[in-house]
């Protein structure tokens, strides 16, 4: 009988279960990536659906052009990602720690904090255009424009990530805290030696998701600042979108930029996973 079960679990029927999902994902993620790569090697004409082969010219242009908009967009996107990580982690984790302590109204607070996360970014951008105009010229100055769209992004994302941290915190067994208290640990030591290490999975997950989300920031930049003033909010996704769909004849160039971004992001995430992994080994050996 045991053999029968083992046989059942090795049945190729599994392919039937995963086939529909795999087909959709392959077509819309990998095939479209392939198409985008093909486009990036051409001087593409979207109206005819074909173009003239130019090899790596689009890539070379993005990387080496003087005053390259690509590097400017990379710089702005990177700044935005850094702001988003600091902002989101710096608000959602403390908020989760506080919220867990609240004896009354925890579920009400959860709902209120989550409200921005369920509101379309377009709507949020429109609200904040109006609010920021009232607060002064934050959005109109090139030094602070990127910060202002980052603030809006952080304001939206904090509640959702707080819920993730809250879920992670609730998984930590209460006994650890009791043990720490018996050992006379201060609140700070408790946080450093119990909460943080046991929250690492959530922390890694949230950080990676924030990086992935923030590196694709589009809506705020498109609705609130349109890349300005003085190109200070020209982020990657906006540049790709503008080149592909607003400027004529730049679709190949836009695809090349998108692929370069993908390469950068890939390396970045690999490095980050390495760093987290090596820290874990350090923690376990010490």
């Amino acid at each position: 009988m045991a053999r029968g079960i083992g046989k059942e679990r090795r049945q190729p029927v599994a392919y039937l279960y995963i086939a529909p999902a795999l087909a959709v994902v392959l077509l819309f993620s990998f095939v479209s990536m392939g198409i985008s790569f093909y486009v990036s090697l051409h001087q593409w004409d979207p109206f005819q659906g074909k173009g003239q082969f130019v090899g790596g010219a689009n890539y070379a242009r993005a990387l080496t052009e003087p005053n390259s908009i690509f590097w400017l967009a990379v710089r702005n996107t990177l700044l935005y990602v850094v702001m988003a990580i600091i902002g989101v982690l710096g608000t959602s984790l403390p908020l989760a720690l506080l919220c867990r302590r609240a004896r009354y109204g925890q579920s009400l607070f959860r709902t209120l904090y989550f409200l921005p996360s369920i509101t379309p970014m377009v709507v949020i951008s429109l609200i904040w255009i109006w609010l920021l105009q009232r607060m002064g010229a934050i959005m109109d100055r090139s030094q602070t424009a990127l910060l202002s769209i980052a603030l809006v992004g952080i304001w939206q994302a904090s509640g959702y990530n707080m819920l993730l941290f809250l879920a992670g915190l609730n998984e930590i067994p209460q006994e650890y805290y009791e043990a720490a208290r018996v050992d006379g640990a201060s609140r700070l030591q408790e946080f450093r030696h119990v909460t943080l290490p046991l929250l690492r999975n959530t922390l890694v997950f949230v950080t990676v998701m924030v990086i992935i989300g923030a590196s694709q920031v589009f809506t705020q930049a498109y609705v609130m600042t349109r890349g300005g003033p003085q190109r200070s909010t020209e982020v990657m996704a906006l540049q790709v979108f503008k080149n592909a769909f607003s400027y004529a004849g730049q679709m190949g160039y836009a695809s090349a930029m998108a692929w370069l971004l993908f390469a950068l992001l890939f390396v970045f995430i690999l490095i980050q996973m390495r760093v987290f992994r090596s820290r874990r080994i350090y923690d376990e050996s010490s």
């Binding site: 994902v25 993620s29 479209s32 985008s36 486009v39 694709q216 679709m251 836009a254 998108a258």
Partner: peptide, 18 residues
């Protein structure tokens, strides 16, 4: 696929749609 930025698939999907 979670690591593939929307920008990369955007143009490909646009062509695919056509």
């Amino acid at each position: 696929t979670i690591m593939i930025p929307g920008e990369v698939t955007l143009i490909g999907r646009y062509e695919l749609m056509f």
